[in-house]
Design a protein around this nucleic acid. Structure first.
Length: 184
DNA sequence: CGAATTTGACCCGCGC
DNA sequence: GCGCGGGTCAAATTCG
């Protein structure tokens, strides 16, 4: 199911705990409007809409991976027509059992870096910002268990501070422990 | 009391 | 033309 549309469609994989309710927060408010069990995937697929702005055309589909039930696949379609409800609050809700579980079987979480992950990104571009917003979730998910400073840099990038302030390595270095909510 | 979530039904598009 | 699958809407229920 790969439609080569010009729309912004981004698919990210997350490590989640099977049985836990997969909630992926990327700074926006999502309202669940449907759920369907597809034939390709025994796992139910959830459909979300951006609830912050009714006019926002962005849709989000979330379902578990066929190969790995621990992998959560979120597909974003469209772009946000509005600003972030709270840019300073980018949070990732991770199950308490999450870890860098090295998936045995070749289905390792795929990491796709949109542009330079820890470099300066043009957040002035709405599309880039949008993609980063989405990709940030996965970045954080994998970074949380590896490099906290990396997450801090990404978090700073979201807030747009990286645009001016290049020194972000001294900001948060202990505020990010494991699966916690980032409050910048 | 209000907002969000859940579940079932309905509609649309595609393939056979 | 019929059947299947995917996606969306709407009403009911539950939680905060």
């Amino acid at each position: 199911m790969e439609k080569t549309s010009a729309e912004t469609s981004l698919t990210i994989d997350l490590n989640t705990n099977p049985g836990e309710t997969p909630i992926v927060k990327d700074g926006y408010q999502w309202r669940k409007y449907g759920q369907k069990i597809t034939r390709d995937n025994p796992s139910p697929r959830a459909y979300y809409k951006c609830s912050f702005a009714p006019s926002c055309p962005v849709k989000k589909k979330v379902q578990r991976s066929v190969n790995d039930s621990t992998l959560l696949v979120a597909t974003y379609e469209g772009q946000h027509n509005h600003h972030h409800p709270s840019r300073a609050e980018i949070s990732v809700a991770l199950p308490p059992g999450i870890n860098a579980a090295s998936s045995p079987g070749g289905s390792s979480p795929r990491v796709e870096c949109l542009g330079s992950s820890k470099a300066h990104v043009d957040l002035t571009d709405p599309m880039i910002c949008n993609k980063i917003q989405s990709a940030i979730v996965e970045q954080m998910a994998s970074s949380l268990t590896r490099n906290s400073s990396f997450t801090a840099a990404l978090a700073a990038a979201i807030t747009g501070r990286i645009l001016d302030d290049q020194d972000v390595s001294e900001e948060n270095d202990d505020s990010i422990s494991n699966s916690r909510i980032l409050s910048l």
